[in-house]
């Protein structure tokens, strides 16, 4: 008779672990990735692969160098690489994609302590880093599967930065418009977002608050339903609201906090879109709200049940 294990309760655990959650996020991103490759061509696929490999390799080497337990099996590096790739334009040189992905993992994530410890979203911060560093980033790519004569993204047209005609609403829904690899297909992103909600990986509070705020503000600004719909489907709003503003490490934990975070993101996005010098503001909005997260969390913490103030 061997000895019995004595350990602290509980003695059963829910099935899902960190790896399972990350796998769910990857599955949820697949429709957008596939849509991106179909719309923007094979180059999009190479960028996705480059980013993912670069991210995983960076984390592997970093953990080796600093002698930490290797964390690549939790798949979070894959998620970061994939998210970054989907936020890049398909004409970005592969070496730049690799550098950006390495920056996301090493500088933004690992140097702050690795998974769960970073205060800023790695994919977003890396994207902004690339926007500032590489001029190629500013040039949007356009669909290769249709005869596209467009030379500007819907947002730059809507904001008057560029001239041209807006794609149809159906094209917007399917993603047949200029933009980043994974951000154009609203339909694919909604399918992915719905999957995350059904699997309870994310709460509805963030995307509803974020998209809802942009919707309301745009409607007030334009006073027109169609123009508002363009605002909702254009730029990086969908991918941002479902996949980046719901990042665990960099957003508030409580449901109320998530609502506040989402509304804040929506307001900043609209400020930048309507009056800023950039046509798009989702990335900056999320990054700014990331910085406010500790304060939001502190202010929105739920009162302990039955707790009495000392």
């Amino acid at each position: 008779m061997s000895l019995l294990t004595v350990s602290s309760s509980p003695h059963i655990r829910a099935a899902r672990n960190t790896q399972g959650i990350m796998l769910d996020v990857i599955i949820a991103l697949l429709p957008a990735a596939v849509a991106g490759v179909i719309i923007f061509g094979l180059n999009a696929l190479f960028i996705i692969l480059t980013c993912v490999i670069s991210a995983v390799l960076s984390e592997f080497i970093f953990d080796k160098v600093v002698k930490k337990r290797n964390t690549i099996t939790d798949l979070s590096a894959v998620v970061t690489g994939l998210l970054l790739a989907l936020n890049l334009s398909s004409n970005v040189p592969l070496w730049q994609a690799a550098v950006g992905s390495c920056f996301a993992i090493v500088v933004v994530k690992c140097l702050f302590g690795g998974i769960g410890q970073n205060f800023a979203n790695p994919a977003i911060t890396a994207r902004i880093f690339m926007l500032i560093s590489f001029t190629d980033m500013a040039q949007s790519a356009f669909p290769t599967i249709v005869d596209s004569v467009a030379t500007a993204t819907p947002l730059s047209i809507a904001s008057g930065v560029s001239e041209g005609s807006l794609p149809s609403l159906l094209d917007m829904l399917l993603g047949l418009r200029g933009g980043c690899i994974g951000e154009t297909s609203t339909l694919a992103l909604l399918i992915g977002g719905a999957y995350l909600l059904i699997r309870r990986v994310i709460y509805w509070h963030t995307p509803v608050a974020f998209i809802g705020t942009v919707f309301v503000c745009s409607f007030i600004f334009y006073g027109d339903f169609t123009a508002t719909l363009y605002q909702i489907m254009a730029g990086g709003l969908m991918i941002g609201a479902f996949f980046m503003a719901t990042d665990y490490a960099t957003t508030p934990v409580s449901k109320l906090g998530k609502l506040v975070f989402g509304i804040g993101c929506g307001l900043i996005t609209c400020l930048i879109r309507f009056w800023g010098s950039y046509p798009e503001g989702v990335s900056y909005a999320i990054l700014l709200m990331n910085i406010l997260t500790p304060y939001i969390e502190k202010l929105t913490a739920k009162k302990p049940f039955g707790g009495v103030k000392a």
């Binding site: 294990t5 003695h11 655990r13 934990v253 409580s254 302990p304 049940f305």
Partner: peptide, 26 residues
């Protein structure tokens, strides 16, 4: 098999412990 204590990994700040606590603790 059911008696193995799982090896903890790093907290990912998912907030499930907070959102599933009956008493709203953190």
């Amino acid at each position: 098999k059911d008696s193995v204590t799982p090896e903890p990994t790093e907290c990912i700040r998912c907030g499930m412990c907070v959102n599933n606590c009956p008493f709203n603790l953190q």
